[in-house]
Computed example of a mutant assay.
Amino acid sequence: MANLPSPYTDAITFSFGDSPELNEQLLGLVLAGKKTATCGALRDYQQGKEAMPVAGRRDVVLNGAGEPAAVIETLSVEIRRFDHVEPSFSDLEGEGPYAQWRAEHEAYFTRNGGFSPEMDVVCERFKLIEVLAAGRALYNQVASPIFIVTDIESDGPTPLHNSMLSFASVAIEADGTLHGEFEAQLTQRPDRTTNEQTMAWWATQPEAWEATTANAEAPALVMPRFADWVESLPGPKVFVAAPMIFDGLWMDHYLDEFAGTRVLSGPFKTRQIFRGGGICLYTMAGTLRGAPYLDWGMSKLPAEFYGHIAHTHKAIDDARGFAHVLVELFKISRALPPITGSKSDFR
């Protein structure tokens, strides 16, 4: 087997399944974010055939060729009788409805030492930590990006001088599949000031101001919680804002300052929760509309693109509206002829 990359040189390695074909199939489910649990016969661990999973440990998953393809971290371990495993757990394995899961596991255990409904199995929950080089091609094939469409509200134009008051994010796939929402209000920073013009505008929006400032929490508490939420979602995550230079700038600054991560990904050694450079919804909407630059603008889009959700300056309302816009723009994008070419000289 190829040498394990740092920092996993001493990690335990294993493969899902008992054949190269099944290895690849189950690995694909893990990389797609559809498989976040597995179970194995307790006897195999007791006999030393496999290392017992331990919560908090990170193991390397091998592909069908025996190459290190991914890293997972065990979240929980529980021993149950096979016939006591509930659909709430089997669903996490991502291998189909409960009846299918049961039939396939009965067949698997039968050909690997015998099956009994009373047999003890080790039920493990895990999360994907990293995709390694040997798993990248499969990951790009099976993973469905989740777009974290985010709107922020602030007491001024720049995070260098002012404070972010609230933000909300909608996690959605390009086809409209919803994966959840996150909303928070933030206390103003003592090392920042308010902008007079911005505060005068807020005085004209009392309902939005109340929603923006109610139950505020410290950014040092909120931003790590948001980063954990993003990481808990399956597949690669992409940040989306309208425009990126405003909402994205605020979120990048606050994530960097309070959670040790960024809106952007890149050759950084810090925690990376997003993939790529993100999407500026303002730019995407302008180009896909085929409009000249001076006619760009989110207000130029028809109301149905927003799902008829009013832009209220409450972060969650605005994020939901922008999420609808993103899905509509992807419909336009998919209808365009693809552009292919030789490998770019860009490095």
Rank of each mutant, 00 (worst) to 15 (best):
W229S: 05
D318M: 14
S232D: 08
Q185S: 15
P236F: 01
G94T: 06
I148K: 02
L221E: 15
R125L: 03
L31E: 10
P302S: 08
K343E: 05
A143E: 12
R347C: 14
S76I: 01
Y8E: 03
T340D: 12
C280P: 01
I148A: 11
G176W: 10
K314W: 07
H324T: 01
S19Y: 02
Q205I: 08
V71L: 10
I129N: 08
V122R: 09
R80V: 00
L160G: 04
M284C: 13
Y108G: 02
G277N: 15
P337L: 05
W250L: 10
P206Q: 07
W202C: 06
V222K: 02
R192Y: 06
L160A: 12
A137R: 13
N3K: 15
D247E: 03
L186A: 09
A335L: 03
T193P: 00
E50W: 14
V54Q: 03
M284D: 10
S88H: 12
A134V: 07
A37P: 06
S19A: 09
A99M: 07
Q197E: 13
L132N: 01
M164E: 01
V131L: 04
A220C: 08
R58E: 14
R43W: 03
K35Y: 02
V327S: 01
L294P: 12
D151A: 13
I152D: 09
E73L: 03
F268V: 11
L75E: 11
Y98C: 00
E93V: 12
C39A: 14
K34V: 09
A65I: 02
D318A: 13
I316D: 06
V142G: 03
S342F: 14
R43C: 03
S15M: 05
E183Y: 13
G48P: 13
I332H: 11
G341A: 09
L233N: 08
A143S: 14
E106Q: 10
G17A: 05
G307K: 08
M164V: 02
A319R: 04
F258K: 11
K314M: 11
A200S: 06
I273N: 00
A55G: 03
I279T: 06
A291C: 03
P302F: 12
E196T: 02
D345H: 09
V54P: 00
N112D: 07
S6H: 10
H161Q: 13
D175G: 10
D44M: 13
M244Y: 12
F126T: 08
T194N: 15
A51G: 02
Y282C: 03
S163T: 06
A137T: 14
T283E: 15
T198I: 10
A32Y: 05
L221N: 13
D345T: 09
V325R: 01
N195Y: 12
P159R: 08
W202S: 06
G114M: 05
T194R: 14
G135F: 09
A203W: 07
L160Y: 05
F82E: 10
T177C: 00
Q185I: 10
A69W: 01
T283A: 15
R43T: 05
A184W: 07
